[in-house]
Design a protein around this nucleic acid. Structure first.
Lengths: 222, 222
DNA sequence: ATATTTTTTTAGTATAATCTAAATCACTAT
DNA sequence: ATAGTGATTTAGATTATACTAAAAAAATAT
């Protein structure tokens, strides 16, 4: 694995995510939006990442991630998500506070640290947002999942992840008790605007817009 | 507190240590040795640290640390030592493995992270090498301590710290059972070379050169 | 007291990551 | 088929950290 600088790691991670795990091409402009840098800076970085052979770069046509690059990206993601578990489970961070800190911690370079952190946490398979944690070889146990708004009336399941991890959205979910792991059932669907009536943990019912429901991912069980 | 870059933090920490907590002047050459950079690079950095008012710098005459600088340095040291406790107590690192990783972790910028880490660890007062952990205001609870080789025959006490934290030295201590907290008593002193016969934890006796003993710090109890 | 040595600083160069402005390429719409 | 628009790259500048070589200041030794 080529050694990457802090900034290179961040670009590579962004490419991995924007390409949906390496499936799609990513454009310079999209990357510049994601990284909050100018397109000119992105071009420069792409040249460097391409020299290190973690991406395939053809000028003016965007990039794809290489197999090597995918491995590197998955290791960074592994570290990020393990640290998130640590922050939430051991240090009592709420799940909307962890992202920025994990963003820094993920760059600490020490394989033994990550291995021991993983053991200390009990080798978790999912992070606090429900996203799968790659193992040391980069293998991911993905759960089948679909957006809550695609369920039919009377369909039930468990919340396994959220698409939008913004602090505002996570605080909203906290307020209504929609945690990862919560069991939900669709009681009713309003045809007019697609909003839903939901039963949470067999206790509380709540109303939810189609937009919100679209950002909640469900593992269907009925 | 002025915001410092990664490199600036490392220089400031080195200045704090080399000046023995701000008591002495530190020369460009000493700093360049400590930082493993060239004197020219040090001069550059001193100019910058001086602009941020964390050191007093008079060209050709070395530097002293300011009150502001001392506060910043103590916060970095606090973070370093708390992470060392975490690594040893929670992640089962041995005390000779922790330094380099803590060297990276100490630069993570998040006041809330450090506060919660401190609580999670039970607000420890000393790190695994016996060095005191500054509190959030920079206050340090120093224990009175003297080098083992300065004890007289029949003097006893507890090992509270080590001066030399090199991996080799720490492994040696591990081997002979001389942990932080171990109770020791001086059974005999060889006049010729200053070497010592030591009783450890009322169980084991061992022989130790004056050099080794000089690097072990004792809180005397008898 | 001056010459020599050592220490420190300055000047100029290099790499990494960013920027702005200008140039160039690709795509779209007639 | 080409003009115009938008995306992308290149060129040149900036900041941070390091380097080497040369100059300058301080310390030392006769």
């Amino acid at each position: 694995m080529p050694s990457l600088t802090y900034a290179e790691e961040n670009y590579l991670k962004a490419i991995y995510h924007l390409s949906d795990g390496g499936k799609n091409n990513v454009s310079t402009n999209d990357l510049s939006k994601e990284m909050k840098t100018k397109p000119a800076s992105v071009s420069d970085m792409l040249r460097k990442l391409s020299e290190k052979e973690v991406i395939n770069y053809r000028k003016y046509y965007g990039v794809t991630i290489t197999e090597e690059g995918k491995k590197s990206a998955l290791q960074i993601i592994r570290k990020h998500r393990l640290w998130e578990v640590f922050l939430v489970e051991k240090l009592m961070f709420s799940w909307d506070e962890v992202h920025d800190v994990a963003e820094e911690l993920e760059h600490i370079k020490s394989p033994i640290l990550i291995q021991r952190l993983d053991d200390f946490l009990g080798n978790p398979k999912y992070d606090p947002h429900g996203d799968p944690i790659p193992d040391e070889f980069g293998d991911v146990k993905a759960r089948p999942r679909l957006p809550l708004n695609e369920l039919m009336v009377n369909d039930g399941g468990q919340i396994v992840a959220v698409k939008d991890s913004s602090a505002a959205f996570l605080r909203y979910l906290d307020k209504v008790g929609a945690y990862i792991g919560a069991r939900i059932k669709v009681l009713d669907k309003v045809e007019f605007d697609g909003s839903l009536e939901i039963l949470v943990d067999n206790k509380k019912t709540l109303f939810m817009s189609k937009d919100v429901a679209g950002n909640i991912l469900i593992m269907q069980t009925s």
